[in-house]
């Protein structure tokens, strides 16, 4: 079966590394030396533990730089103060409202973009005339920075959720559309011809031939769109002032509540991490289901 390659970083199998491949299959296991040296013991620290160590070190640097006076505390308060401010935030209703607003704007915008991008991608991709006729327009509209629409959005839609949605949908729509188009183009011509030969209805062709090939591409598009959508949600809050984390951060900065500002930045980062992790988990889940179903269907 066809192996899906991520469109953003795809590289051919022949170039991919066989990570730490021992030259020949391992043979005889020999008991490990009794007393490993200190250096060897450090080397034996698993990577995950090193990562945790990295986070701790980073936090320590954030704490010490202002404490030692290397950076003025009015620019960078000690890490503990950021955490204190974060604690205050977690106890305040306004913070949770802002967080919810942000998640809402992101989720609605992403959902609209994904549905629209998938539907249009399937239709345009399946009809050759449409694909050729729209190619130049897509190539022109896609690179337009969605933030250019901010003034227009404010004029027409005001400073509420509507403006945020317009920007988020515009930005998140393109990666989905392009990936779905790529997926439809990747459908095996033999499979397509076979389906036509057996008299599959267009709907059945879409369901059983086009969709399974396109799904991995759609997942890649979803992953890219999810992080772009978050960037645009926060941007629009920052610039337009629609309620959410972005406007809270701007407010904290202008009112000189510096630890609070950093606390909110940490929350925005954590939100970004959640979005990435969720998108990757969803991708893995859907794709594992997808391959297992296909393997079963073949057996």
């Amino acid at each position: 079966m066809r192996v899906h390659q991520r469109a953003d970083t795809g590289r051919p199998p022949a170039l991919s590394p066989a990570a730490d491949r021992p030259p020949d299959p391992p043979a005889t296991a020999v008991p490990a030396p009794a007393a490993p040296s200190a250096a060897a013991r450090l080397r034996a620290v698993p990577d995950a533990a090193l990562g945790v160590l990295g986070i701790v070190l980073f936090a320590a640097v954030l704490e010490l730089l202002p404490r030692l006076g290397a950076v003025p505390a009015k620019y960078l308060p000690p890490f503990s103060e950021m955490l204190g401010a974060l604690g205050d935030e977690l106890g305040s209703g306004a913070f949770w409202t802002a967080l919810l607003d942000t998640v809402e704007g992101w989720a609605y915008g992403l959902a609209i973009a994904v549905v629209a991008g998938t539907a249009l991608g399937l239709v345009i991709g399946s009809v050759e005339v449409l694909r050729k006729a729209t190619a130049s327009t897509i190539e022109f509209l896609r690179p337009i920075p969605s933030v250019a629409l901010i003034p227009l959005a404010v004029l027409v839609l005001g400073t509420g959720l509507g403006s945020t949605l317009l920007l988020v949908v515009y930005a998140a729509f393109w990666p989905v559309l392009l990936q779905v188009l790529g997926g439809v183009r990747d459908v095996d011509p033999v499979a397509r011809d076979t389906a036509v030969g057996y008299g599959f209805s267009p709907w059945a062709r879409l369901r059983h031939v086009v969709w399974p090939t396109t799904l991995p591409y759609l997942m890649t598009g979803l992953r890219l769109a999810a992080s772009v959508a978050l960037i645009l949600t926060v941007s629009s809050q920052l610039i337009i002032g629609s309620p959410g984390l972005g406007s809270e951060i701007a407010r904290a900065q202008s009112s000189n509540a510096i630890p609070r500002m950093y606390a909110l930045v940490l929350v925005a980062g954590a939100l970004g991490v959640c979005v990435n992790v969720l998108a990757r988990a969803l991708e893995r889940r859907v794709l594992s289901w997808h391959t297992s179903v296909r393997t079963e269907a073949r057996a």
Binding site: P22, P23, P26, A27, P31, P33
Partner: peptide, 12 residues
Amino acid sequence: KVYQGSGRTVEA
């Protein structure tokens, strides 16, 4: 030549 793996060594 002995390969040092994680937790086990292999004499190739």
